[in-house]
Computed example of a mutant assay.
Amino acid sequence: MADHLHHEHHGADLASAAQATLERSGEQWTAMRASIFQALSSFDKPASAYDIADAVSKIEGRRVAANSVYRILDLFVTANLARRVESANAYIANAHPDCLHDCIFLVCDHCGQTVHIDDDKLSRGVRSAAVAAGFAPERPVIEVRGKCADCA
């Protein structure tokens, strides 16, 4: 992984970047996938599949099952459109889906706010340590739990 700067997308620009990234991976950007991504990106904290299913159900005016949302979220994680916060079993939209980095999350135990940061030097160190231990790292996830600046 090379160190570099990247553009963080927001709003409609984020949805366009997500669509382009998904289509480059050979997948289709369907109406349901667009609705789920829109709902996911509207949350200011990590959202569960149930949270997203409820939001999409309200928008669509019909019940959307959480298991359908889980399948699409798994696709989004694989395609780098979303990140999974493992300890919370929740998801956040990736603000730079066109750029692949390992996950480093700062999770506030008080308010739940979660920030995704990129630190390629740290990621390389974690990957190197895993390799040195005879392990083949595929998807390192680092979560730092504590208090955000607002709650500290």
Rank of each mutant, 00 (worst) to 15 (best):
C151L: 03
V115D: 14
S35H: 07
F43W: 00
S42Y: 06
A2W: 08
H96I: 15
S42I: 11
I36V: 12
V126I: 15
L22I: 05
D120G: 10
H96N: 13
T21D: 13
K147R: 13
R71V: 05
R145M: 13
D102T: 09
A95E: 10
E8N: 10
Y50L: 15
V141T: 04
Q38N: 09
S57E: 01
I59M: 12
R124C: 08
S35N: 11
K121M: 09
R127P: 04
D118L: 13
E60V: 12
F135L: 15
Y50P: 12
A12L: 05
S41P: 01
K147W: 14
G146F: 08
L100F: 10
I104G: 02
V77G: 03
P137L: 02
F76P: 07
Y70R: 14
N67A: 10
L40Q: 10
D102Q: 11
E23S: 08
A136M: 09
N67Y: 11
R33Q: 06
T21Y: 05
K45R: 11
A79D: 13
P46A: 13
K45T: 09
V56M: 03
S123K: 03
D118C: 13
V56D: 02
A17M: 02
E23D: 08
K45F: 15
V85N: 11
W29G: 14
A47K: 04
S128N: 15
Q38R: 09
V131M: 06
S48W: 12
A152K: 10
I117R: 04
A20T: 00
K121R: 08
K45M: 09
R24P: 08
A15M: 02
A55D: 07
D102S: 14
A130C: 10
A136W: 14
A49V: 06
A129M: 07
F76S: 05
G146I: 10
L40M: 11
L73Q: 00
S16T: 05
D51T: 07
C99A: 14
G125T: 08
Y50W: 12
S35G: 11
G26V: 06
L122I: 15
G134D: 13
M1K: 05
T114W: 15
D102A: 15
F76T: 04
G11C: 08
G61T: 04
L106K: 06
F37D: 06
N80K: 08
L106A: 09
G112V: 03
H110M: 10
R71D: 07
P137C: 02
S41G: 00
C148F: 02
V131D: 05
E27S: 12
R84F: 09
C103H: 07
A130Q: 07
D120K: 09
M1I: 07
N89Y: 10
R84D: 06
L75C: 12
A95P: 07
S87T: 01
W29K: 14
R71S: 09
T78M: 14
R84C: 06
P46R: 08
I117M: 07
A129H: 00
T30K: 02
A12K: 03
S87V: 03
L122H: 08
F76G: 06
P46Q: 10
L106E: 11
A95H: 02
F105D: 01
A20K: 00
A2G: 10
T30R: 01
D150E: 12
D13K: 02
A149L: 09
G134F: 10
A129Y: 00
I117F: 00
W29D: 15
H96Q: 12
A15P: 00
